[in-house]
């Protein structure tokens, strides 16, 4: 039982790592990124390619995260510019359609060029014994990665001036602009940061299963579900929702099977939108 709980928490942290990017980009840029899973896959595939070049895995992972970030930068500076020019509903719609198109373009491209590339990371020791429970070392590493990333993210958002600036834009873009903040530059920063987090999530996923070109849509849908359940503007909510859904996912997979679990998760997302569009845990960002 404890093993399942731990497993769920680790999975949940993974999910949150993916979802927090969607939350950040939506909160700050007003664009719902439907290509987020593809960012993760780009990170994963890049890492696999660097490992294939003979690089040390750790260095390859760092380069993979940077590649995802670079990809995010390019997307933000080129494709999303027309969306940023609009405001309100129009921007949402344009951003949604552009990123949807992007997700297919990336899927198609990766499938074409790197169909046989997949990332699998193997750790030297497969499992540890902790207080009578066997824990996979992959879980420990993944949990540490996610917790580390979140700690850094929170420290950045709460502790630095730039973090304060970011939070101010999430609260009110016009107001922030009036205080002399340039939302465009901050937005780029956030998109890059989110893409890097997604890339990190994709690489961490490689600890458990092989990350190939076909994972993109699945990762996007899971991240989207978590972001929606957490409230697409709340970072705390996203973290909480990720862990909660991770635990639900682990127990449901154990009790009723993977197929029903997916349906349960999807239904949770649908009902959250319908009953509490602001998210289950949305009270502050």
């Amino acid at each position: 039982m404890i093993a399942i709980l731990l497993d769920g928490i680790v999975q949940g942290l993974q999910l949150s790592l993916m979802a927090v990017g969607i939350t950040l980009i939506f909160g700050l840029g007003g664009v719902l990124n439907l290509a987020h899973g593809q960012f993760a896959v780009v990170g994963g595939i890049a890492t696999a390619l660097f490992v294939g070049e003979g690089l040390h895995p750790l260095a390859a992972c760092v380069l993979g995260v940077l590649t995802a970030g670079l990809f995010g930068l390019v997307v933000d500076r080129t494709l999303l510019v027309p969306a940023y020019r609009c405001a309100g509903e129009e921007r949402l719609l344009l951003g949604l359609l552009i990123t949807l198109g992007l997700s297919f373009a990336v899927n198609g491209f990766l499938d074409l060029r790197y169909a046989d590339v997949a990332l699998t990371l193997r750790l030297p020791t497969p499992s540890y014994e902790l207080g009578g429970v066997t824990v996979r070392s992959a879980s420990i590493v993944a949990a540490l990665i996610a917790l580390g990333a979140f700690a850094l993210l929170f420290a950045f958002l709460k502790g630095t001036l730039l973090g304060k600036v970011i939070r101010s834009i999430i609260q009110n873009e016009v107001g922030a602009g009036l205080c002399g903040i340039n939302p465009g530059r901050i937005r780029t920063l956030i998109v890059v940061l989110s893409a890097m987090l997604a890339g990190l999530g994709g690489i961490a996923q490689g600890l458990f299963s092989s990350v190939g070109t076909e994972m993109g849509n699945e990762l996007t849908s899971f991240a989207l579900i978590v972001a929606v359940v957490g409230g697409v503007r709340s970072i705390n909510g996203t973290l909480a929702a990720g862990v909660l859904l991770g635990i639900v996912n682990a127990f449901a997979s154990y009790l009723v099977g993977a197929y029903m679990t997916l349906l349960i998760l999807l239904a949770t997302a649908a009902f959250t939108i319908l009953l509490r569009p602001q998210g289950l845990f949305a009270y502050r960002t």
Binding site: L79, G101, F104, A105, N107, G108, F109, D111
Partner: peptide, 10 residues
């Protein structure tokens, strides 16, 4: 073709 659809859509 998936790539083409995506690019076309954008």
């Amino acid at each position: 073709n998936v790539l083409v659809y995506g690019v076309l859509m954008i």
